[in-house]
Design a protein around this nucleic acid. Structure first.
Length: 219
DNA sequence: AACCAGGACGTGA
DNA sequence: TCACGTCATGGT
């Protein structure tokens, strides 16, 4: 089983996943009843997002909020921020950490994440619309390899493959990895075995997560 | 009622 | 480097 074959098989079985989920897409692409939690934000088969700067920032913030946290919880925090009008870099930076902590509580680690959001908002403003480099993102407090690659791949459409715990688990189960590789090693493995294309990277990562989730639930 | 989630950071060896 | 401990809410 090669990576490309695994990709085709998963895409054939589960269909396009429509990552990264965004707020405010109600009904635009229909719903996906196979997903748990909120489903309106996914846009299967449409790789044109983000379409606005606000959506781009939303993805960056979501990437922080979902660290070691289920998406439904992260999305609650995201909705709270949206309801407070804080899904905006300037406003988020202007908000107090106390206020942020209160709003993002459902996502867990709210002390650390409030600080991370502030750092990211300040950085985002400093960018002034420019696309950040991976090194710049990694230099930020609170942004590690997975979060950096998620931001680059889903918010900025750069071909950076995202590796997470699910990726390692599925690849190990398929005999394509041992599970002991470093982040960069797994990433290199995937890059080597796949067509180097943003849509493929976006889709394959989402499919691996879906596959792992179903496997945990014994299909 | 444990167990864990779409990680990252700090510390000591 | 590497192996742990810490951070925290909510779903299963």
């Amino acid at each position: 089983m090669t990576l490309r074959a695994l990709y085709r098989r998963l895409l054939n079985r589960y269909g396009p996943q429509g990552w990264w989920p965004l707020l405010g897409l109600h009904g635009r692409h229909g719903t996906n009843p196979t997903k748990t939690g909120s489903v309106e934000g996914y846009h299967p088969g449409d790789y044109s997002y983000p379409r606005t700067d606000r959506q781009r920032f939303e993805i960056c913030i979501g990437a922080i909020l979902t660290q070691n946290t289920g998406w439904p919880n992260a999305e609650k925090a995201l909705r709270n921020l949206d309801g407070a009008g804080l899904l905006d870099a300037e406003r988020m930076l202007a908000a107090t950490e106390e206020e942020l902590r209160k709003l993002i509580r459902p996502a867990g680690y709210y002390n650390q994440k409030a600080r991370k959001l502030k750092a990211l908002a300040a950085f985002y403003i400093l960018l002034g619309g420019r696309t950040p480099s991976r090194e710049e993102l990694l230099a930020l407090w609170g942004v590690g390899p997975e979060t950096a690659d998620s931001i680059l791949l889903y918010a900025y459409h750069l071909p950076e493959f995202v590796v997470d715990a699910y990726t390692r688990r599925v690849l190990a189960a398929e005999g394509l990895a041992t599970g002991k590789e470093t982040y960069d090693e797994v990433k290199a493995l995937c890059v080597k075995g796949l067509l180097q294309d943003v849509a493929v990277y976006q889709e394959f990562h989402a499919l691996l997560v879906e596959r792992a989730k179903r496997q945990v639930r014994k299909e």
